[in-house]
């Protein structure tokens, strides 16, 4: 655990969960209220919701310059904003042996924990109850996990921040924050997943100057199909009840992620009233490939028969997945 400066913090999150803002408020507290010097920044990409994002804080004495601008690869404090991120090797990579890990984890979760000094908080449950976002709850847990963070000073910064919008919002966020602080459970996990060694800041990419096609051309069409976007969902997923489905195809028009799985049945036979038999093509919706579904629920909005419904994310998703390929 970080008990003296310098120390480094890394937040692992998904765009839209508010990790960047949380890190910013924490760093502001450390600099403007606690008199440290700090730098804070996030991984840089285009402004997309649902894609992995990392935020970093370096902390040192007020009068020591911070000159390094590359990402934090060996954090003293590592906060994971979504349990699904634990599946990625890079999420936990480089956590210092004496470091602390804060995980947003549903109380009922059975997912194995990494071998580390952990603080567990069910930030989603708190946020749902308080009608706020998970980032303030996680900040509470982080404040508890690090003795060098003045929890009251951070609360004051939070209050200032939200007071500007509405006092109700400020109150709800403060409550979320302190609940995160109080409800975070400290545990020392001795048998679990090993913390991977740090990823180099400059890991070699797959293609190199001897192997990459000239000019940056990509010669494998459609290779993005290997991506897994399931971490983009924020708590909900569409569920298909086939018994209610009329296979009308309206959902397919509005799905931006092309993840509905259809089966074309080339020939079926129908008998008309005049007893004439004719061939006809049929197509049926057979399921959803949750590897690509980002949980926008536009299909649910559009479904005229109630076959698609909004459901809390759970282990059913894996069972219900119908792969496109």
């Amino acid at each position: 655990m970080a008990t003296s400066v310098p120390f480094e913090i890394r937040f692992e999150s998904i765009g839209g969960l508010g990790a960047h803002l949380a890190a910013q408020l924490l760093a502001e507290t450390l600099v403007l209220r606690q008199g440290f010097n700090a730098s804070q920044f996030s991984s840089y990409g285009s402004e997309k919701k649902g894609t992995p994002i990392r935020s970093f804080i370096r902390v040192t004495d007020a009068h020591k310059p911070i000159r390094v601008s590359s990402p934090v690869i060996e954090p003293d404090i590592l906060a994971v904003f979504h349990e699904a991120l634990l599946a990625r090797r890079s999420t936990l990579a480089g956590l210092k042996p004496k470091g602390v890990l804060v995980i947003n984890r549903p109380r009922a979760s059975t997912r194995p924990l990494p071998r580390a000094h952990v603080f567990l908080v069910d930030a989603m449950a708190i946020a749902v109850e308080e009608r706020t976002r998970i980032n303030t709850a996680i900040l509470g847990a982080v404040a508890k996990a690090c003795a060098l963070i003045d929890a009251k000073a951070l609360a004051a910064i939070l209050e200032e921040r939200f007071r500007g919008k509405s006092s109700k919002l400020a109150e709800a966020n403060l409550k979320t924050y302190w609940r995160g602080y109080e409800e975070a459970v400290e545990r020392t996990v001795t048998d679990g997943l090993e913390i991977p060694p740090p990823d180099g800041a400059t890991a070699a990419p797959r293609w190199g100057y001897l192997t990459a096609p000239l000019g940056g051309a990509i010669l494998e069409p459609g290779s993005m199909v290997a991506n897994d976007l399931s971490a983009s969902r924020q708590g909900f997923a569409p569920r298909l009840n086939l018994a209610r489905c009329t296979h009308c195809g309206i959902c397919d028009l509005v799905c931006p992620d092309y993840c509905l799985v259809w089966e074309a049945q080339e020939v079926s036979t129908c008998v008309g009233p005049d007893q004439v038999v004719w061939d006809r093509q049929a197509a049926r919706l057979v399921g959803i490939d949750y590897q690509f579904c980002k949980g926008c629920l536009r299909c649910v909005e559009s479904c005229p028969s109630g076959a698609l419904t909004k459901e809390l994310e759970g282990s059913w998703v894996q069972d219900a997945r119908v792969p496109l390929w």
């Binding site: 997309k48 919701k49 894609t51 993005m224 199909v225 290997a226 924020q234 992620d257 629920l297």
Partner: peptide
């Protein structure tokens, strides 16, 4: 276009 693209949910 294949699924697996990184647009925001609901794009």
């Amino acid at each position: 276009v294949t699924p697996g693209h990184g647009a925001c949910p609901g794009c």
